[in-house]
Amino acid sequence: MTSLGFSLSHARLAFSGQWLFDGLSATFAAGSWTGLLGRSGSGKSSLLRMIADLPIPDTHALTLTTSDQRPLAGRLAWMAQQDQLLPWRKVIDNVLLGPALRGRPTAAQRQRAMTLLDEVGLSDKAEQWPKTLSGGQRQRVALARTLFEDAPVVLMDEPFSAVDAITRLELHELAARLLAGRTVLLVTHDPLEALRLSDRILILSDQPASLSDFEVPGGQRPRALDAPDVQRMQSQLVARLHSAPHTNNEGST
């Protein structure tokens, strides 16, 4: 897997007749992690879906270019807020979902899925039903499934928001280690998560919305929770998100 950067331009999204954003552009450097923040209704999740070419009900358009000029389709992995494990597939078969949806998984692919489960610390759960796992374990299986695809670009929509705080911190460490070298775009509501994991933080705010940069702490990802920079910037980031005009769609701005 070689790393792959991409950029978007002319991104526009309408919501009930109004442009939520229009003419957005951004570049995501190969191998970098970008945290995308914004208040509810700012359209950040929709932007992520647009990049992944997933269906959204509203009028939208987007131009995507990659660093090697070939299409992004087929080279991205998707991680959603919920782990989206299929309850009728055993843990290992969930990791093997990609090959199973494109054909029939081979023995070598099964072997690789086992290795990945081992890396997320769940090799002993391979033959269990997802129902028997905890929320954190399930999200680790989802991570293994994402890793299996070996995609250079990983899009994550609040992937750690459904687990408790401690589990979330553990998942940060694991994700940062296992997804190193990939171009990651992480939509999150959690300022701390963005500060720990991002090389770059983008805030989507105003109406029509635009993207603005927020300074990130120094040091290697995942940054320590108690690093003074992380603590200080967390309050700044919260203040910045708070002061951003609320882009709600109910009207009054």
Binding site: W78, A80, R102
Partner: peptide, 23 residues
């Protein structure tokens, strides 16, 4: 969510129907 996953994993319509929608 499952349909999104199937799409990003490159499933064809037949396999999506039999391996995701049917179960």
């Amino acid at each position: 969510g499952w349909l999104d996953l199937a799409q990003t994993l490159g499933a064809d319509r037949r396999r999506r129907l039999l391996r995701i929608q049917l179960p």
